[in-house]
Design a protein around this nucleic acid. Structure first.
Lengths: 187, 187
DNA sequence: CGCGCGATTGAGTAATTTCAAATCTAGTGG
DNA sequence: CCACTAGATTTGAAATTACTCAATCGCGCG
């Protein structure tokens, strides 16, 4: 069950068996059922999660109770409320399962410890943080400059499997439009 | 003129004089006039820029010619078209001066070289990439869940100096609304 | 067969955009 | 000191777009 993690890390930095067991010793395996919460808005965020299988949504409930989707997290994705995780504070978002999901989780303490004893993993995390930053910028760009129509097409082109795995209602709240508006788009 | 960079890096990782001169040898100082372009949409992106003084805007011109502002970059900020920079490809955005601006620039080659010979700088860049990622997520969150009104207040609360330094038109295109709409908001 | 969930459709309402005109402001030269 | 201009901001009004609320449709499952 750790093989996915090794393959994933080795796409960026090669590892010896010893290094990899050093890594796995910092992670804990955990299983969740559909609809379970990994992170609850308002509560302390202790972990970052690496998704082995399944699907998560990172969501924010605004004052009026409406749900906004910041991101989906599927196989090989890292997800958490990063702001809360790195500052050891309370979550402004929730992280919830859309399917039964298996993850590896790591605490901030273990994350920092791992970076100390295995410096090359820092390069890996840098690569991940960078690509995450780039992806977020692209998302901002599309929110600012593209119509809901175009954003929908971009999303489905990039992650075709989402169309199969999640409801239109959820896609709408990722795109930032009401489900009725999404429904009226002509593909 | 490199002192700003040293102070900035040492907020995250301490440096010896030798280490710092190693760093500066990888950067080049450059001055720009107001309205100059550091990056032109469509052209190759060779550098990441550290802003010593002045103010930049990272913008995207859509098909209809409308300008969208992804980010402002002021003193101590790092900015570039990151996607294009890391993949050595052409810019989808432009980076332009709103004021006379002084920067230190580094190429991807020098960036990677520096990471090799000075591993502790990787931790610094990781910290920057992480906080950049978090900031982008917060921006997405506010685009999805807050009214233009609230976003405007959040922006001015977070960066009060922007109100002095840039026109309302630019703030509007950062917030994702027309300048007329911004003008009609009651503060 | 009927229930329940998600998706769609309709109609009225609210918010934003667009285009145009008017106003304000800072800097310039007489 | 004042008039003038260029650029930025504000205001007005029509047109577009998206939202909300409600009703209907479609489909899988007990």
């Amino acid at each position: 069950m750790h093989n996915e993690l090794r393959r994933h890390i080795e796409e960026i930095v090669p590892l010896t068996d010893n290094e990899f067991s050093l890594i796995t010793s910092h992670f804990t395996f955990q299983k969740f059922k559909k609809n379970d919460f990994l992170i609850h808005q308002g509560e302390r965020v202790k972990h970052t999660y690496f998704v082995i299988s399944g699907l998560l949504k990172l969501i924010y409930h605004d004052e009026s109770g409406k749900e906004h989707i910041l991101s989906f997290a599927m196989e090989d994705w890292w997800e958490t409320d990063y702001r809360a995780f790195y500052t050891t504070s309370n979550a402004t978002m929730s992280l919830q399962c859309l399917e039964d999901t298996e993850v590896l989780r790591i605490t901030l303490e273990d994350y920092l410890h791992l970076c100390t004893i295995l410096p090359k993993i820092v390069s890996f995390f840098l690569e991940k943080a960078t690509s995450g930053h780039i992806a977020s910028q692209q998302r901002i760009l599309s929110l600012l400059s593209s119509s809901a129509q175009d954003r929908y097409e971009q999303l489905l082109h990039r992650y075709p499997s989402l169309f199969q795995r999640v409801s239109k209602t959820l896609l709408a709240s990722y795109l930032g439009v009401s489900r009725e508006t999404l429904s009226r788009l002509t593909l």
